[in-house]
Amino acid sequence: MGARRGASGLIYEVFRQERRGQPFEHAGSVEAPDADFAEAWAREQYGRRGESVALWLVPRDAIRDVEDWADEFDLKYRRVDGYSIKARLKEARERAGAAGDR
């Protein structure tokens, strides 16, 4: 795990929303001694140019990292890349085309 506490305090990950209704996306982080400082500093760094309508501040410690999945038996049918849809699509189009001709 990376450093969670910097020279002057905690690290907060900042997520910003560009327009109402849009998802929050990770913007970066701020290092601050507490949540109030983090808010003030994040407002400036991620909002002063009107680039955000809202921010989420999350202490890095609150984030649970999940990054590996065991896939020992190659269950590729579970994955989005499991099937090649390209060939099937081509086939289906040909069928549909042939049906249209009839």
């Binding site: 701020v30 290092e31 601050a32 500093w41 407002r43 002063r48």
Partner: peptide, 11 residues
């Protein structure tokens, strides 16, 4: 004293 404060204070 801190980079973040620098940005905030200047703003």
């Amino acid at each position: 004293p801190m980079l973040e404060e620098d940005v905030a204070f200047s703003s």
